[in-house]
Amino acid sequence: MTTTRVRISIVGAGPGGLTCARILQRHGVAVTVHDRDAGPDARDQGGSLDLREGDGQLALREAGLLDLFHAHARVEGQEMRVLDRTGVIRDHHVPDADDRSKPEIDRGRLRALLLDSLEPGTVRWGHTLDRVTGPADGPRTLHFTNGTTTRADLVIGADGAFSRVRAAVSPTVPRYTGVSFLEARFDDVDNRHADLARLVGPGSAHAADGTRALFAQRNGDNHLRVYVIRRTPLDEPTTTDRLLTEFVDWSPLLRRVLTDHDGPRVNRPIFALPVPHTWPHDPTVTLLGDAAHLMPPLGVGVNLAMLDAAELALALAGSDTVAEAVRAYEATMLPRSTEAAELLEHATEDLLSAPEPGDTRAR
Rank of each mutant, 00 (worst) to 15 (best):
M1E: 01
T4L: 13
T4S: 15
T4Y: 03
I8T: 14
S9W: 07
G16R: 00
R22G: 02
L24D: 01
H27D: 03
G28D: 04
H34I: 07
R36V: 07
D44M: 00
S48V: 06
G54C: 01
D55P: 09
L60M: 08
E62M: 03
L66W: 05
L68Q: 13
F69E: 06
E76Y: 06
R81P: 15
L83V: 02
V88I: 03
D96N: 07
D96Y: 09
A97Y: 06
D98M: 04
R111M: 14
L114V: 15
L114T: 14
D116P: 01
P120M: 12
G121S: 13
R124C: 13
W125A: 13
H127E: 12
T128Q: 13
L129K: 11
D130E: 12
V132S: 06
T133G: 11
T133Q: 05
G134R: 02
D137C: 03
R140T: 07
T141M: 05
F144I: 06
F144A: 02
D153G: 12
L154Q: 04
I156K: 01
G157W: 05
A158W: 00
D159H: 05
D159I: 04
G160V: 05
A161N: 07
S163N: 07
V165A: 03
R166T: 05
A167T: 09
T172P: 02
V173I: 14
P174R: 02
R175W: 02
Y176K: 03
G178Q: 13
D188K: 09
D188V: 10
N191V: 14
H193Q: 10
L196Y: 06
V200R: 09
G201N: 10
G203Y: 03
T211F: 10
R212E: 11
A213F: 04
G220C: 01
L224E: 02
R231E: 15
L234N: 11
D235F: 09
E236I: 01
D241Q: 15
F247R: 15
W250P: 08
L253C: 08
L253N: 14
T259F: 12
H261D: 11
V266A: 15
N267Q: 14
R268D: 11
F271T: 01
A272M: 00
P274E: 01
H277C: 06
P283Q: 01
T284D: 02
L294P: 00
L298F: 09
V300N: 04
V302D: 02
L304I: 01
M306P: 08
L307Y: 04
E311G: 03
E311S: 00
A315E: 00
S319L: 14
D320E: 15
V322C: 13
A323E: 10
A323G: 14
T332G: 12
E342W: 11
L343A: 15
L343W: 14
L344W: 09
L344F: 07
E349W: 15
P355Y: 03
D359C: 09
R363P: 09
